[in-house]
Amino acid sequence: MIQKITFLTLIFILFSCSTEHSESNTSADNMYFPPTDGSTTWETKSITDLGWNVSAVQPLLDYLQEKNSKSFIILGNGRIVLEHYFNGHTASTLWKWNSAGKTLTSTVAGIAAQEGLLNLNNKVSDYIGTGWTSAPLTKENLITCKNLLCMNSGLDDSLGDDVSPSNLKYLADAGTRWAYHNVYVKLQDVVEQASGQPWNTYFNTKLRDKIGMESSGFWYIGTGANLGLKIYFSTTRSMARFGLLALNKGKWNGTQIINEAFLNDATSTSQNINQAYGYLWWLNGKSSYHLPQTQLQFSGCLIPTAPNDMFCALGKDDQKIYVIPSKKMVIVRMGDAADSSNMALSDFDEVLWQKISALYP
């Protein structure tokens, strides 16, 4: 279970979530998109030119180094403001997204829906057949594609990452219980059946290649206790490209990759149990939240030290994509767990955001 309630957290919860600073200088430039032709070209903007606090850079990098980071990028209006690699990791090294990659599945499912290949309100069994769980058929047929996006399938989340039918057991009716569960990966099977294409092919042609994510990225398919689980590996810059697409409401350099309406829904509260959860995206600035592996509701916002309007892709061992529309910023962190192993969130997020906020006015 994530150890989220610390003295620091309690102090912040007594107050409202972080209010935004005045709009940073990143907003003065036009949005930039790096080329999608395989070039390594990517425009930069220096911290000095932005009028940011240069003296805050080294404390941030020192903290990232101390906390087992492998890479860190800040984009402002699409340009690289800060990029740093640690402990032998490089710009070409692949690393796992873990559950931050859930947002890739959400986005690709949304693309398939906008192409008319599937209806998110339809039950999952319409696409992959019955018996994909061990729940009674009447209960299985309550589970829609949208329930998988919202994490309210009602399936038992205590049985581990194996998503074979025997391990997907009924616990509550779909829509009545929020629980963080890797059953979301069944959406990839839905897309395969609806499109008539292998998941990798559809993902590559509809998303990866269109925004220039490197072709070296790949999906690892779990076995044994992780049977059926798929985890994406990529470079840090590929992760940043995806964050930039999300920042720009699904549009890449004038081309709408995923429609804005879907992305707005995906980054808004998706159900009435966990305010801080959209369609596989985490949402800051809400009055309460739930965390993986617990049914407790916590008061206050997800990351009190971060901007209220931030939404994020969060993965085990502190894989992060932070998207901050008010700042036109995307921030990526990849690495090993900052402290003890965790599913998505840790106290690292709060301290990291104190360090990030010291950078800009």
Rank of each mutant, 00 (worst) to 15 (best):
S125F: 00
T103H: 00
I128V: 03
G116P: 01
A135Y: 01
S195W: 01
Q188T: 13
D209C: 13
Y170R: 04
W178T: 00
G131L: 07
G116S: 04
L207Y: 06
K169S: 08
R208L: 09
T103S: 13
S166L: 14
V163N: 12
D189V: 07
T223D: 14
Q114E: 14
I128N: 06
P165C: 01
K206W: 02
R208Y: 12
P198S: 13
L159R: 15
L117F: 08
S215H: 12
V108K: 12
L171Y: 15
A112E: 06
N119T: 09
P165A: 05
G160I: 09
A179K: 10
K169Q: 14
S166H: 13
W219Y: 11
M151S: 12
Q197F: 04
A100N: 03
T107G: 04
L104S: 12
L104N: 11
D157M: 08
Y127K: 04
T201V: 11
S125D: 09
A194L: 00
G212Q: 02
F203H: 01
L117S: 09
N182E: 09
A135F: 00
K186L: 15
N141F: 02
A112Y: 02
D157P: 11
T107N: 01
L155W: 04
S106C: 02
I111G: 00
G196V: 01
N152C: 12
A100P: 01
D173I: 01
L168W: 06
K139M: 07
W97C: 01
W219C: 05
D209G: 11
E140N: 12
K186W: 12
A135N: 00
L155I: 08
L142H: 14
M151K: 06
K210A: 09
K206T: 08
D156R: 13
F218Q: 05
V191S: 02
L142V: 06
A174E: 03
A179V: 13
G217V: 05
S195D: 09
G222K: 01
S153L: 05
F218V: 09
N200K: 15
L117D: 07
F218D: 08
C145K: 05
A179N: 14
Y127N: 05
D126G: 04
N182G: 12
C145V: 14
D161V: 10
L137P: 14
W178Y: 03
G175H: 13
N121R: 12
N204E: 15
D161L: 08
L117Y: 10
G212M: 00
S99A: 08
W132L: 02
Y180H: 06
S195C: 08
S216D: 13
N141S: 06
K210Q: 15
T138I: 13
A100V: 01
H181P: 07
G116I: 00
